[in-house]
Simulated assay, not measured.
Amino acid sequence: MKRLVTILVLGAAACADESPSTPDNALELTMRATIPAGTEVEYCKFVEIPDAWVTKDTVEFTAGSHHVLVYQTSYTTIPTAKENGTVVDTSGVFDCSDGATSWKVTKLIGGSQNRDGAAILSFPDGIALHVGGIAMINVHYVNGSDAPLDTDVKIRFETIAAEDVVQEGDILFLYNPLISVPAGGTARAHMRCPVYADITIANAQSHMHARGTGYEARVDTNAPFYTNSEWESVPVKDYENLTVKAGSTLDYYCDYRNTTGRGIYQGPRSTDEMCMLIGSYYPADPRTANCLDPSGKVPGGDWVGGGSATCQATLGCLQNAGGALPAITDCMLAAKPEVAAPASAALRCFMTATNPLADCGPQIQACSAR
């Protein structure tokens, strides 16, 4: 099988002229940034990458980098403004602490949360993920020292020729936005995501922040295929034949312990929390990869509460939440686990309907009966 290695050393500088040290058929880019003392930031960089089929990534980054992610975008040229119209100097590294979703990202194509461990992307022979055009590198930095910190990030994608691709792969990137950990207490964030096509999972890993104490992922109600109790040095587990049938659910949860005096919700900062299931899988199905509804346009899946509230009581709570995510989160997590499906269906309709009371009649009726 023909192989070549495309090396992406992700970064701020423009592409250097090819030199004797640059491998043939390789693209080298660099991302170097100096992080001010005592700060936590996310920096991004747009890069143009060739049309390619990638099978594996390896990531190197210096201390201070919490994670490195590479996203495919739908841009044909490097943009100079966010989706809301805010003009940004994107000629080099720029601050993107408000998140990658301010830009037209279409899918995750690589990255790592481990300095010395496995990365995200890894497929068996003949399986590859399609990339090309404008990509965005996103790096989360934490510099707790009293001095500026110089950082460097490198990513290497292994590729195969298009004629050697048997099936298109993709990356599972399941994100649960409903997390609430009370001050001095414990909590669980639990989500079930639909699987729309028969898939095979090649690897899996969790993602939590410092309050994370436990994690499990399973198919339906089967035994977990992935468990972890660490938020740092996260293990990446490889599978030879982990098949998941269409109509199944990917069920995952994160457990937390909060020793601070304030409540903690989801968010990108280290002082916030996250709960994710990430992994390489094939064949590609964007709805499954991103936990979307059947239309592929809005969030799908069920948020599973751990309280005692009925679905009808949860409806009343949601109506009083005023659209604020922390309040919505507390409403949903106070619900009984048995009403996860109707409560989640109602919440999805509320989030997308022009007139929820008029447009969400069936969902309200189904939830009110529970």
Rank of each mutant, 00 (worst) to 15 (best):
T314H: 08
N25R: 15
A189V: 00
D293L: 03
T77P: 06
D51R: 14
R257S: 13
N222L: 10
D255E: 07
E273N: 02
R370S: 14
P268F: 03
W303A: 09
T30L: 15
K245Q: 08
A334W: 00
T73Y: 09
M191F: 03
A118L: 11
T310N: 10
R192E: 04
P326N: 12
Y265R: 07
K82W: 05
E338K: 05
I137G: 15
R3T: 11
F225A: 06
I171L: 13
I78G: 10
D238M: 12
D125H: 02
D116C: 08
D17R: 14
G144T: 09
R218A: 12
A353P: 04
T288A: 06
P20C: 06
N241W: 13
N222W: 00
S102N: 11
V9P: 06
T101Q: 06
S19R: 15
I264C: 03
T76N: 15
S97P: 01
A345V: 08
S229A: 14
K104F: 04
A341G: 04
T73R: 13
V59G: 11
P283A: 10
G117F: 04
N25C: 13
T186W: 04
E338S: 13
H140L: 09
N203A: 05
S206W: 01
S248Y: 01
V9M: 14
V47H: 05
H67A: 14
Y196S: 03
L250N: 00
A37P: 00
Y71D: 05
S248F: 02
T76Y: 12
P124S: 08
I134L: 11
K297I: 11
T186Q: 10
G296N: 07
A26M: 11
T227V: 12
R211C: 09
T34N: 05
M136W: 00
G214N: 08
E18C: 12
A217G: 04
I328L: 15
P124F: 00
G126I: 02
A358W: 04
D302T: 03
P286A: 14
K245T: 01
D330L: 13
L27R: 15
E338R: 06
P235R: 02
C96V: 01
